[in-house]
Design a protein around this nucleic acid. Structure first.
Lengths: 185, 185
DNA sequence: TGTGGATAGTGATGTAGATCACGCAATCAC
DNA sequence: GTGATTGCGTGATCTACATCACTATCCACA
């Protein structure tokens, strides 16, 4: 699955891919388990094989905001903490049972410096994330909740069944009450 | 200036840097001039040497949202359009007189594939942009206007003098009236 | 079998910020 | 030098959404 994902962007020889792949560790988690907890040191990023993760922030009023739902072939981590060595500001946990491949920061940097095409892949991936994030920022500023809700459902219809509405509200940045009123009309 | 900027991240030989640098073109713009207009094909990204650019989106109600102010050593473009070949959804123009170095998409990809360290540099740069964008998204969801205003002023105090308050409002995602009332209290 | 904890719907009320409308400089065009 | 344009402040009103409070349902598990 990872091979297919990477092959779309980077032309790796079998040996190169083996070198890359050997650096990952398979991990399985149960629904609700925490992968990264705010305050932790972060040493890994996670490639989702199955299930669904969420990366989220909890503010002083114990209100949660979801930055990303990570579905299969998506990557998740606290990238600020991972790159800068700072403590995690953001947490990651499992919305459903999940299988992930984890890659350490040190291993990523090493393989990136060894294999040019892997560096190319990660540049592409990060760029995609950047573009998506900008798009969401714009939507956040420009569109009302209803619009954002429809946008989300169009992009990930499967979320509707998989995740509690509360989490959808936390992704959209509204209260669960408002969201509830919204689609009962 | 570009050399210094790149050197922080990537170790280039003089020959490599010359190869890189030769691909840029110097351009000068006057305050108010447009660099990328929504609907255009986008072929370049821009490294700011002096002055200040803004990248912005205008919605159907002719309301403007500013995604980024680009100060010296920052990069600007419509990265979605640039990478995907789509038409620009976002515009870029000059808040002040500005000097920029422009780099074409084709040239970036070529030098990235030729010189591993350049690819490394762009991966780093994009990652930084991604992290900043995520942070802003979170701030947008979590903090009220006053908080966001103070955050912006703490990060770029020079903006206060350089840009009209209208633009600051458009960056914060509020009406100019609300912003005006805000700092007269 | 019942008890506690998620999850979700809904009414009443509060509020941050939008919108509309106006006046008042300062700057630009010619 | 006069009229037009742009930027800014301010009052009155409107509205999308938050918050609080209560109820109902489902499900885990002692």
């Amino acid at each position: 699955m990872l091979k297919e994902h990477v092959a779309k962007i980077a032309a790796l020889t079998d040996a190169e891919f083996d070198n890359f792949f050997a650096r990952f560790e398979l991990q399985s988690f149960k629904k609700g388990q925490t992968i990264i907890s705010a305050g932790d040191r972060v040493n890994h990023e996670y490639f989702v094989l199955s299930g669904c993760l969420k990366t989220f922030y909890i503010n002083d009023d114990i209100k949660m905001y979801i930055l990303q739902f990570a579905m299969p072939t998506w990557w998740a981590s606290d990238y600020n903490a991972l790159y800068s060595g700072a403590k995690a500001a953001v947490s990651v946990d499992c919305v459903t049972d999940a299988e992930v491949l984890r890659l350490s920061n040190a291993n990523r940097e090493e393989i990136c410096s060894q294999v040019h095409q892997v560096e190319h892949f990660f540049r592409w991936r990060t760029n995609k994330g950047y573009v998506a994030s900008q798009k969401r920022l714009l939507s956040m500023m420009n569109n009302d909740v209803k619009h954002r809700y429809e946008e989300l459902m169009a992009q990930y219809p499967e979320l509707y069944n998989i995740v509690p509405k509360q989490l959808i509200a936390a992704y959209l940045g509204v209260s669960r009450e408002t969201l509830s009123r919204l689609y009962n009309s």
